[in-house]
């Protein structure tokens, strides 16, 4: 299996988003797309060239983009607005809180360039807080797809989920774990590998790292369950509870700050229902920095070997 994992096709999640917008635009007149200058970086350009009359360029003005999108939703449009994740969320948090979430406006927020793997642009452009921010808002839904196909499927699904949805994509090409026929079931985590010693719950690019870690641990006689928790809000409580009951130990892995992200969301479920030990693989309360994506993942402790180490730690705490 490990050998297979090294031979997967590499594709960008943000391209899955861009291609989904075109497919959506073809079949639904209500789809509109907004961008704030970085149209091609976030792959909204595919849509902009195909449907120029339904593409709204707002310039470098993210606060305005979020609220213009809100207005478009009020006349029946299904707006997707997109820029780098750091700017599509943090920069316009108040607009998202009041105009979008408090009003339950039907706006789809897309954050490209999520995570440390953005690379050489450094800390300003490495969104590491959006999952925490977005999931704290009532009415908001949060999705972090793991690869190209899941990004495409999730984008297609988000168009028809009522109310605000946040979608997080990455910058780099990542291994393609799903294919064109893999369904996307909003709100339902996916068990990619069954096991009973420890469950690794991951999202985004960390799903691949989790599968590699499980393979390594398997060779050492540790039987890992791997869950792709692509929907972080609403969270798949039942799946997490079952994993905790059956495995008795949890590792969460995400390319996000440790405080408030997917791991925190899982911990909230565990402490309320099945308080088993959990270890966090995440960015440990620090800003990012420049570097190559893979060396950054290594430097920030977000590689498969870090998940392996976390699994061993949590197993020592398991009763």
């Amino acid at each position: 299996m490990l050998k297979e994992l090294t031979r997967l096709e590499m594709k960008k999640t943000r391209e899955g988003f861009g291609h989904a917008l075109v497919d959506l635009g073809e079949k639904d007149e209500r789809i509109v797309v907004l961008a704030a200058d970085v149209t091609d970086s976030v792959n909204a350009g595919f849509f902009a060239r195909r449907f120029p009359e339904r593409f709204v360029q707002v310039g470098i003005a993210e606060q305005n983009m979020a609220t213009v999108a809100t207005g478009l939703s009020l006349v029946g449009k299904i707006p997707f607005y997109s820029t780098y994740g750091a700017f599509s969320t943090c920069r316009c948090m108040d607009q998202i809180r009041i105009s979008i979430c408090y009003s339950n406006a039907n706006v789809k927020i897309c954050g490209a360039h999520g995570g440390i793997s953005v690379g050489p642009d450094g800390a300003t452009h490495q969104a590491l807080e959006e999952i925490a921010m977005m999931r704290s808002l009532p009415n908001m839904k949060v999705i972090v797809p793991c690869d190209y196909w899941q990004s495409k499927r999730a984008t297609m699904a988000a168009a028809y989920i009522d109310g605000p949805v946040f979608l997080r994509f990455g910058r780099e090409a990542v291994p393609t774990l799903t294919d064109e026929s893999t369904p996307f079931d909003f709100g339902k985590g996916v068990v990619l590998r069954d096991g009973g010693d420890v469950a690794i719950i991951a999202c985004g690019v960390m799903v691949y790292e989790a599968l590699v870690a499980a393979e390594v641990l398997g060779k050492q006689g540790i039987d890992c369950r791997v869950i792709n928790l692509h929907t972080i809000k609403p969270i798949d409580r039942d799946l997490i509870i079952r994993a905790a009951r059956e495995c008795g130990a949890i590792v969460t892995a995400e390319e996000h700050q440790v405080y408030g992200g997917m791991g925190s969301a899982v911990a909230e479920v565990l402490v309320s229902h099945v308080p088993v030990p959990q270890e966090f693989v995440a960015v440990m309360d620090r800003f990012g920095q420049s570097g190559q994506p893979d060396e950054l993942l290594r430097a920030f402790g977000l590689k498969s070997e870090d998940i392996v180490a976390a699994a061993k730690r949590v197993l020592k705490r398991k009763k």
């Binding site: 509109v32 009359e53 339904r54 709204v56 606060q63 305005n64 979020a66 609220t67 213009v68 999108a69 809100t70 207005g71 478009l72 939703s73 009020l74 006349v75 029946g76 449009k77 707006p79 108040d94 607009q95 809180r97 009041i98 105009s99 408090y102 009003s103 406006a105």
Partner: peptide, 28 residues
């Protein structure tokens, strides 16, 4: 039409409605 109270958001929303109406060629 929209929740408000944090200042500086209403005109952007109005712009969205106006732009959407232009896209639809609606006279609103």
């Amino acid at each position: 039409e929209i929740s408000s109270g944090s200042l500086g958001q209403g005109l952007s929303i109005a712009c969205g409605v106006a732009k959407g109406s232009k896209i639809d060629k609606h006279p609103r």
